[in-house]
Design a protein around this nucleic acid. Structure first.
Length: 203
DNA sequence: GCTACGATGACCT
DNA sequence: GGTCATCGTAGCA
């Protein structure tokens, strides 16, 4: 698919006004698009996780605002990007009105455009399946850095679009991955059976 | 200051 | 299946 077909229009701001759990489901099947000077990369979102600080001990902002989680308190439709384990970064979509800290972590996408650009960033031998399977890998493939923390998700560098010819996919829920608090809450959403989902797709 | 520990991934067996 | 790299945050003294 040529890059021109990947530059889909950003979703309307109203899309991000949904409650966080609804938005985490609604993001499945949408296309994440990233444009840099190198070119365009895009992929279909197949796995998300919801974090709502007001009630969620696993959320970064559960204990209040800090310099790191500041953008989680901002208006919806923006990015919250943070560093984890000292070496990876993760991308979240900020949800809920400003002042309420909540976000949806994008855990995996199915690459649709710019695979060779992704491979240049991720490593020459990396198979398509592993380009964006996992939050850290996805950010590396899309060149998402801390510089994008707080950036608008309405372009021109990063946005979410309707998927061309895409019927809404099936959605399944499961506990979230890699957390120790509220570990049994079914706030992870994924497309069942999709090869590009991280972790154990059936769990 | 000091320390413990991650919303992970790569690589090994 | 397991180990470990690697360092910014946050919490506490």
């Amino acid at each position: 698919m040529p890059d021109s077909d990947c530059a889909l229009s950003p979703l309307a701001p109203a899309f991000y006004a949904q409650p966080t759990l609804d938005l985490a489901r609604a993001l499945l099947g949408k296309t994440l698009v990233r444009r840099t000077a190198e070119g365009v990369t895009a992929g279909i979102i197949v796995e998300t996780e919801a974090y709502v600080a007001a009630i969620d001990p696993a959320a970064h902002a559960y204990r209040g605002q800090t310099p790191r989680n500041r953008s989680m308190f901002g208006p919806p439709g923006h990015a919250y990007v943070y560093r984890i384990y000292g070496m990876h970064v993760c991308l979240n979509v900020v949800t809920e009105p400003a002042g309420q800290a909540a976000a949806v972590l994008i855990r995996a996408v199915e690459p649709t455009c710019g695979r060779e650009l992704m491979r240049a960033r991720r490593g020459a031998g990396v198979p398509d399946r592993d380009l964006c399977r996992g939050p850290g890998r996805l950010c590396q493939a899309f060149a998402i850095t801390l510089a994008l923390d707080g950036a608008s998700l309405h372009g021109p560098e990063l946005w979410v679009a309707e998927t061309l010819g895409g019927a809404p996919p099936a959605a399944a829920a499961s506990p979230r991955i890699g957390i120790s608090h509220a570990a049994d809450w079914p706030w992870r959403f994924y497309v069942p059976g999709n090869r590009y989902v991280s972790g154990r797709p059936w769990k």
